[in-house]
Design a protein around this nucleic acid. Structure first.
Lengths: 198, 198
DNA sequence: GACGCTACTGGACCGACGGTCCAGTTGTCG
DNA sequence: CGACAACTGGACCGTCGGTCCAGTAGCGTC
């Protein structure tokens, strides 16, 4: 993805310790109950180290998110169909949505921890900063697939709508209750209504 | 809606002063930049008064939301078609989604200020508290209409998916840019795919 | 193996915030 | 008009995200 950014041995060790501690905390507590001090303590480092490495709470969550999303990214770019190239757009979209929901379900609190997908900065009059790379990637993929089959639709907005699903608290709760299949089926119904089987 | 809850004259005055001050702030700043102290100062009261009346930040936002949603509530229960009773489910659903999007667009920051639609309480092991009344009402209405025409669909989940739209930060940004019509059209396309014209 | 440069470390510290508390005030009702 | 309860508001508290910087320890060099 990005530059390897040669880090010192202890820095690498602490980096992964922080990431592992964070995901461990995420499985046990609601995101908003996880303070940066708790993360630091759980990782066995000082708070300064966490901020030195990740810059901010949001940066930490984003790094974790990117780590989790990497496999999916590879699958859609270089993997076999239907996720990868080769299958018709409709099949690829269905497979992708399924994969996203399963990924989110496995990492329940993570998306919620990322917050509104666009941090509010201290500077009052800043432009609405764009979403994190993972969101951009997912959105681009979906809108691309939709556009391939239905140029008459607003693929851009439709992709936002489909992804909104995965940011909604009630739906995240449903996922936590194991209702992932219901969500997948509903998304499939929606897509089926728009992209008729060839 | 609920009991009138007779308040003292000064309490009523301060209550509306706080609500008006809050919406005025919401039009000018991002929700997360609005602290309760700022609200109190803008309303010309003490912070204690705000908390005495609304209990918490979330309570204040919820009260404001309910105030805004009242007109829509009335329109769907006792108003004329297609919002009110009398029109076929598909038409009522399209009209309702349009009304919701327009309402949200008019009150940009408000939904964002409400946060994840389910506050995280201090008590760690509490059940995921249910969403605020407005969300419940909207969800019930949508799922009811869907169910009328398509008993084979998961109306409950579908309603969550459609409403998720309105909680998504990227989509709220789009609304702020005046793209409300794009969103409405996209939602209409989705519904049209699922509920064929009679 | 010793050395010095530099990146890394970690905990004290800061300002802001949500929320609590309570002494003083002010409507309301008999 | 008097008394009581409800309301008021600002001082105060604990916590949090983030900063700072003196101390430390890897890493390349000789």
């Amino acid at each position: 993805m990005t530059e390897p950014e040669r880090l010192r041995a202890d820095a690498v060790r602490n980096r992964t310790a922080i990431l592992r501690a964070t995901e461990e905390l995420l499985t046990r507590y609601h995101p908003q109950q996880i303070s940066m001090e708790k993360v630091a303590a759980a990782a066995g480092v000082g708070k300064g180290t966490v901020f030195h490495r990740f810059g901010s709470r949001h940066g930490l969550m984003r790094a974790l998110m990117q780590e989790r999303a990497q496999d999916l990214e590879i699958a859609i770019t270089t993997g076999p169909p239907p996720l990868g190239q080769g299958a018709p757009p409709r099949a690829r979209l269905l497979a992708f949505l399924t994969a996203v929901v399963e990924m989110v379900a496995r990492n329940k609190g993570l998306l919620a921890a990322l917050g509104p997908a666009a941090p509010v900065t201290a500077v009052p009059e800043e432009e609405p900063r764009e979403a994190h790379p993972v969101y951009r990637s997912w959105h681009g993929h979906i809108s691309h697939l939709v556009h391939q089959q239905r140029q008459d639709l607003d693929a851009d907005m439709l992709a936002h709508v489909l992804l909104a699903t995965v940011h909604s608290e009630p739906i995240l709760n449903a996922l936590e209750r194991g209702d992932g299949n219901r969500l997948i089926r509903t998304l499939h119904d929606l897509v089926a209504g728009l992209m008729p089987n060839p």
